[in-house]
Design a protein around this nucleic acid. Structure first.
Length: 772
DNA sequence: CTAGAAACTTAGAAACCACGGC
DNA sequence: GCCGTGGTTTCTAAGTTTCTAG
């Protein structure tokens, strides 16, 4: 599969391209294209039966040959090996069943509180179940009632469970033992026996590690029932510069008013960055800076080029240097203070559990750093005040207090959303949120669900593929476009590609927003036929470059789509993400374009792991195999990184290490030989021991050398590829966990601490026979 | 329906930090 | 103890999808 992907380049080399595209678009007024000429549209509406079309039809016999090879390499011989009822149950959970509830008077949040928040077992007590359905999301007022029944509310200690619950759980996690205490114990039978033995530790662990995945999920669209937090940490106030640090205008020192000075420091802090040399950046900065100046300053400062920020810049550099040089005690003090803030603001209580917040600090003011050719780079990101901030929490929780003399913009109690704090950012006018950490229940459930959806796609992907292949022949243009786009999304793992407002963001595209200029068609290229070349900037202005042979029918369709279009016209002019997703939704419940990325990524990992892992290899070799499988996915998803600046050097360092090892090894080998000879002669104990010692040494060195070589290969192959994103967002962690268990690789080699926290659910539940 | 807002996931870069070699 | 390096964590931009109002 990785063979499908051509060489890739980096953003850097493509900068000029991006610029050109921009100019181009400006010339032809975009709007005219967007609101398309209707006559033209109608002409295009139906697919003409052109000559190519006829040829296509006569092509039928070749269809067999044309069978798509999917990136997972499987033409669907996946034995559905999953435990069926587990599956079913999952799915039930996924879609809430509608059931009528008998109307009951609603209690508002206020009421519910003691019960929800209470940790007393009484509060959790579940009533006898009536039916097994869940309330319809529409019956708002009834929900609460049901919720209480539905949700077995467990107190912090997930301890004993009574009949009903354990029955349920058992069905779901068959392997689970009846023993109540089992809940605490990690299910992995391998190492963690200690947990059970050391009861003190176990108790502690039990509190820390809440297994939310063993509990029922709310099905009514509510995200929580109780939420209490301390609010955000605001950006520290601006500290004016000391008198001796001056700003110069036109060579002369000039004292700025605090407001203007603050913005100037933002620029000064970025002086070393390439940004500050860019025209747009400077222009945007200057414009916004002027807004902060007094009229007097405005009249004096008329040219950014005459501004000298170097003294300020030097000052900040010295400051950060000084910070590094601080004594141990000072550093410790700072660390403790950070820890204190973290403890106070970094956690919230959600539904009886203390959960880590992801980003509890409000973004400080500064200059906007857009990626790629962003038209807004350099604009002032203004300071967020309490008056800009919306707080979301339980009505009956202790509300966070705004700082002395200020007030929040609003305090609301919306349990249909997961965020704790929000504010509107001034650059794009979008809303920013404070939400929970990936290890939290609320994120984890969603993540799990995401992979379950992808697994459902696996079950019907053949059907869908057959369908879109069929649609390539449709009489309707829109259907053909949809089908070809879907083919790209499936085969190349492209993103959906929403339309974007021009001039607001960098000019990047995804599948549906591809333009004519982004693809080139080659009926013949080298020894291949029907090659499509993609070259465009995707998310984060990362270049996507790929050449791929496509089926003839796709090729012909693309030619058709290109007819009579300008380079800057949309390739799929009758398609957008909402049309596409609506179609997908009809094909499978919960299916959207991005599910294909998840599905293809995960299935690729699984299949690559199977292919690459050889049972007899050493652990380091296995890890290399794992990373290679991971890499295949990263390449599929086009997850690139700029080669680290120190890459060459670090490679060299590793190489010298390897050379050294090799030298060592050969000397020790010689010694071993010598020792053997000696032993042959003397046959005494001492010489025998010596042989053993040397033999061990050789073995150890060999292992070390091997490991180093693995590392080197790994690093080399990884030069421009970022594994993290796919690992974190696209690969069903249970695949990795299963692999690790199967081959006895320590999980730490695959997931670091943070990752293990995020994937705790998978680590706990996946056994070695797990199949995606 | 459509447009725009809202909510949430995905993304690479930068900042930070821990650790091993000198 | 210092320093460089590489891994980890933080940061926040940039996507996708869903929701809502007209």
């Amino acid at each position: 599969m990785s063979g499908d992907h051509g060489p890739r380049d980096y953003q850097g080399n493509s900068g000029s391209r991006a610029n050109d595209a921009h100019k181009h678009r400006d010339k032809h007024k975009e709007k005219e294209h967007r609101h398309k000429d209707h006559k033209k549209d109608k002409e295009r509406e139906k697919v003409k039966h052109s000559s190519s079309e006829h040829r296509e039809h006569s092509d039928k016999k070749h269809r067999e040959k044309e069978k798509v090879k999917h990136s997972d390499g499987s033409t669907d011989k996946h034995r559905e090996r999953q435990k069926e009822d587990q599956e079913k149950r999952r799915e039930e959970k996924d879609k809430p069943t509608v059931v009528e509830c008998k109307p009951k008077k609603e209690k508002e949040n206020g009421h519910a509180r003691e019960r929800w928040n209470s940790s007393s077992p009484a509060a959790i007590k579940s009533e006898p179940e009536e039916g097994n359905g869940y309330p319809s999301p529409k019956h708002k007022s009834l929900k609460r009632e049901r919720l209480e029944e539905e949700f077995e509310y467990k107190a912090k200690k997930i301890k004993t469970e009574n009949g009903k619950k354990s029955k349920k759980r058992k069905q779901e996690y068959e392997e689970e033992e009846d023993d109540d205490e089992e809940v605490i114990k990690p299910k992995m039978k391998t190492k963690d026996k200690k947990a059970g033995a050391d009861s003190k530790k176990a108790k502690k662990e039990q509190e820390e590690k809440w297994k939310w995945w063993e509990e029922e999920r709310a099905t009514d669209g509510s995200k929580w029932r109780f939420l209490e937090h301390k609010g955000p940490v605001l950006a520290p106030p601006y500290e004016p510069l000391p008198g001796h640090v001056r700003f110069y205008y036109d060579g002369k020192p000039m004292k700025l008013t605090t407001g203007a000075e603050e913005v100037a420091t933002f620029f000064a802090k970025m002086l070393d960055h390439e940004y500050t040399t860019k025209d747009i950046f400077r222009k945007n900065f200057y414009k916004d800076w002027r807004k902060e100046m007094t009229s007097e300053e405005k009249s004096k400062i008329t040219d950014l080029n005459k501004c000298n920020f170097t003294e300020m810049s030097e000052y900040f550099k010295a400051q950060s240097e000084a910070r590094k040089q601080m004594s141990k005690e000072e550093k410790l003090k700072i660390r403790e203070e950070n820890e204190r803030v973290l403890q106070e603001y970094g956690f919230c209580v959600m539904d009886n559990h203390k959960e880590r917040i992801g980003n509890f600090r409000i973004e400080p003011p500064g200059l906007f750093r857009g990626r790629g050719d962003h038209p807004k780079m350099g604009m002032l990101k203004r300071r967020i005040r309490p008056e800009d901030i919306i707080i979301n929490c339980s009505k009956d929780s202790k509300h966070p207090k705004p700082p002395q003399g200020t007030r929040w913009k609003e305090v609301r109690h919306d349990n249909k959303v997961t965020w704790l704090v929000s504010w509107t950012e001034n650059i794009q006018g979008s809303i920013k949120y404070i939400m929970l950490n990936p290890s939290s229940r609320i994120k984890g459930e969603k993540d799990w669900q995401k992979y379950e959806t992808a697994r459902r796609l696996k079950k019907c992907v053949d059907r869908l593929r057959a369908q879109y292949r069929d649609d390539w022949k449709s009489k309707e243009m829109r259907i053909r476009q949809r089908a070809v786009a879907l083919y790209f999304i499936d085969k190349l793992a492209l993103r959906a590609g929403n339309e974007k407002e021009e001039g607001e963001t960098a000019d990047t595209v995804g599948c549906c927003s591809l333009r004519v200029e982004h693809i080139k068609l080659y009926p013949k290229m080298d020894d291949q036929e029907y090659v499509v070349e993609f070259d465009f900037l995707g998310k984060d202005s990362i270049r996507y470059y790929n050449k791929m042979p496509v089926e003839k029918r796709v090729f012909k369709n693309l030619q058709l789509f290109l007819e009579n279009k300008q380079p800057e016209d949309d390739l799929f002019d009758r398609l957008n993400t909402s049309i596409l997703n609506k179609h997908l939704q009809e094909l499978m419940d919960g299916l959207t374009a991005k599910v294909f990325r998840t599905y293809n990524a995960s299935i690729t990992l699984q299949q690559q792991l199977k292919e690459l892992t050889s049972p007899e290899e050493s652990i380091p070799a296995k890890i290399l195999s794992y990373n290679r499988a991971n890499r295949a996915v990263a390449i599929l998803c086009n997850h690139q990184r700029a080669p680290p600046k120190t890459f060459e050097k670090s490679m060299q360092n590793l190489q010298t290490k390897i050379d050294e090892k090799q030298k060592q090894l050969s000397t020790v080998r010689k010694q071993l030989k010598g020792a053997k000879n000696e032993h042959k002669c003397s046959h005494d104990d001492k010489s025998k021991k010596m042989v053993e010692v040397k033999r061990k040494a050789v073995q150890r060195l060999e292992e070390q050398l091997m490991s180093l070589q693995m590392q080197a290969t790994d690093r080399e192959e990884n030069k421009q590829i970022a594994l993290g994103t796919s690992k974190l967002n696209y690969l069903d962690p249970r695949i990795s966990v299963a692999w690790v268990k199967k081959w006895d690789v320590p999980i730490e080699k695959i997931y670091n601490k943070t990752q293990r926290e995020k994937f705790a659910w998978a680590i706990d539940m996946a056994e070695e026979d797990y199949e995606f």
